[in-house]
Write a protein that binds this DNA or RNA. Structure first.
Length: 345
DNA sequence: AACAAGATCAACCGCGAATCA
DNA sequence: ATGATTCGCGGTTGATCTTGT
């Protein structure tokens, strides 16, 4: 089992790249594309393994790479996404234009992590170091973890979509997309039906709280996922959460007209066509009327509210921060402000 | 000026996932 | 269906640079 490291074969060079090697690699890829990385070194006349070539290209030579100091905006983005995703550098990098996962990882390890630690914030949990979850909070923690998994899966799927520059090709998903488009003509065609965390972070926070419902608990199994909102229970087919369709979120399913149940009653096509969701229609419609990106604007406040309710307790870094929406917003903004401000020593 | 310690970051390594034959 | 191969990710290393004494 296993295989020997590709660079163990004799004669292959390791270590820093020379300008001449860079030139050879660049010239070859510009003319032929990289194709098979394994075969590339011989074709390009390089005494390197394919892995080394790929790394050099993706982390250094690629023309669409921005080098140099990270902006405060980029720092904020990294911290926000790390809070959501953990050390999933490639996924984080997919949301930060022109930065590589390696660069972001290095920057996190050498700058941001230390800065958070100095402020007394655990860089892995993004909570104050003296904060530990009590037994009474285990349910909330589980919910947080669950929601984070959803978001992680969605972000990964979105990153994949970006990479592939095409939408998921699936009859069911396509059907949902086309129906959703019919209801939401202002959504740009081809735009993945999922939210951009950062867009919401920067813009959607300002929406009145009453437009949103709250996920109070949730559970997941291979057949379906149950979301317990403040007033309503949704059972969402797991098609929205499996690997292939992970970009379809629970709330997207609600809006994208999948055959789920509300309070045990299957929604009929006419309910869907008319945006008629028994027991929840008024709230839904408020959100629908308020933005071009219904699914986005509805879902993320729900998600983030759940997050901050759990994350922010009375011991948070900026003082009192209960379950109030604005205070939760303040928690995150304050955290980010601290993170991006110069360290006072 | 010389040295040590700390910081930085390009590059490597090993593993798991995806793809191929 | 299965094993081999390739790819990509995240953790780690170590050479080089910077700062402090």
């Amino acid at each position: 089992m296993g295989r020997s490291p590709c660079c163990d074969k004799g004669g292959l060079k390791k270590g820093p790249w020379t300008p001449g090697e860079d030139q050879k690699l660049l010239a070859y890829i510009e003319e032929h594309g990289h194709g098979s990385w394994r075969a590339l070194p011989a074709k390009a006349g390089l005494q390197r393994c394919g892995k080394s070539c790929r790394l050099r290209w993706t982390n250094y030579l690629r023309p669409d790479i921005k080098r140099g100091k990270f902006t405060s905006q980029e720092e904020q983005t990294i911290v926000q996404l790390h809070a959501l995703l953990g050390n999933r550098w490639s996924t984080i990098a997919s949301h930060i234009p022109k930065r590589t996962d390696n660069e972001i990882k290095n920057y996190w390890n050498t700058h941001l992590k230390k800065r958070l630690t100095k402020m007394g914030i655990d860089p892995m949990t993004h909570k104050p170091n003296n904060h530990t979850l009590g037994s009474g909070q285990s349910k909330d923690a589980a919910n947080l973890s669950h929601m984070a998994q959803w978001e992680s899966a969605r972000l990964e799927a979105e990153a994949r979509l970006v990479r592939e520059s095409k939408l998921v090709c699936n009859p069911y998903h396509s059907q949902l997309q086309s129906k959703a488009m019919a209801l939401r003509p202002s959504v740009p065609p081809g735009r993945p039906q999922c939210l951009d965390v950062l867009k919401v972070w920067r813009g959607e926070w300002t929406k009145p709280r009453k437009e949103y419902v709250t996920i109070v608990s949730s559970s997941f199994n291979p057949q379906n996922t149950t979301l317990n909102f403040s007033e309503n229970i949704f059972t969402v087919p797991s098609v929205g959460f499996d690997e292939e369709h992970s970009s379809i979120t629970a709330i997207n399913c609600i809006h994208n007209l999948s055959p789920y149940e509300v309070h045990g009653t299957s929604l009929k096509e006419e309910n869907i066509q008319n945006n008629n969701f028994p027991g929840v229609e008024s709230r839904m419609e408020n959100s629908i009327d308020s933005t071009n990106y219904i699914a986005d604007s509805l879902r993320i406040p729900i998600l983030m509210e759940g997050f901050t309710d759990i994350l922010a307790d009375s011991d948070n870094v900026v003082g009192s921060c209960g379950g109030d929406f604005d205070e939760n917003k303040n928690y995150w903004n304050s955290l980010l402000k601290l993170v991006t401000s110069p360290v006072v020593t």
